[in-house]
Design a protein around this nucleic acid. Structure first.
Length: 256
DNA sequence: ATGGTAGAAACTCTA
């Protein structure tokens, strides 16, 4: 079973790339973030034509998440229970006996910003929800844009980024407490190339200069981590014409 | 030196 996550930064613009990529890699489950589309504008017909079942939780202009799946989905949840939030950032579903949570964690803008406080509150609520989901679904995968680089090796210049949003201590602590709830960072289950990143700023030729961060993650419950055989970042779509600023992350599970 | 780019929308906000 192949699970993938990709922040597409507008599904309207990136749909051809998403269909092309899904056709090449055939993930069983593809979690998308920043679709920026209301559900009634979601390209369901095009996704079905590619052999996938669409599931969307979107809004106009900002945020928005979706799951496209080869197999039927059930037990859908579109918000963190008990957390009031008009921003569409989560989508959970059960697919082929696996619980999938797709998340678009708030960016935070800067550590001085109100949006940063919202990010930390959001992460606390998210953590509580993951614990609850894990207690009922031992086979749980959490995929998405976490907007947190967990460690020095996940940042091209950790000294320059120390204390900045995406790499501040409170954010990294929040990420650690997500893992402590019973998850593994799938990417770090395996030996990986140095300077492995999933996001590069559009500005300053950051991609060409390898100035990236690893902020998109696949967290696997201990039960699923045992069956994970690979986790990779595919930077090919980042090279293409009119790319998303994020690259997809793929995790493979051998569940027999 | 506080820049730069991209997307959506609508002359600004978010990332």
């Amino acid at each position: 079973m192949k699970l993938a996550t990709w922040n597409v930064n507008s599904l309207k613009v990136r749909l051809p790339q998403v269909l092309d990529w899904a056709g090449k890699h055939r993930p069983d489950v593809l979690c998308l973030q920043e679709t920026k589309l209301q559900n009634d504008r979601f390209p369901a017909a095009e996704i079905r034509a590619a052999g996938y079942e669409p599931l969307a939780n979107g809004q106009k202009t900002y945020n928005g998440v979706a799951i496209v799946s080869l197999n039927p989905t059930s037990e859908t949840i579109t918000e963190i229970p008990g957390f009031e939030d008009p921003q569409k950032r989560v989508l959970a579903a059960t697919i082929g006996g696996i619980r999938i949570i797709n998340a678009y964690v708030p960016n935070g803008e800067s550590v001085e910003s109100d949006k940063y406080q919202y990010k930390l509150k959001w992460l606390a609520a998210f953590s509580g929800w993951l614990k609850d989901e894990l207690s009922r679904h031992p086979r749980l995968a959490v995929l998405g844009d976490f907007n947190i680089a967990p460690e020095n090796r996940d940042v091209y210049d950790p000294k320059a980024w120390e204390g900045q949003v995406l790499f501040s201590a409170p954010e990294r602590d929040a990420f650690k407490s997500l893992l402590a709830a019973g998850f593994r960072d799938a990417f770090r289950l395996f030996e990986q190339p140095e300077r492995s990143f999933t996001w590069w700023d559009y500005r300053m030729n950051a991609f060409r200069r390898k100035m990236g961060l690893r902020i998109d993650h696949v967290l696997l419950s201990e039960e699923l981590a045992k069956h994970c055989t690979a986790c990779t970042i595919d930077i090919e779509p980042r090279r293409s014409e009119r790319p998303s600023d994020h690259a997809p992350v793929v995790a493979e599970l051998n569940l027999n």
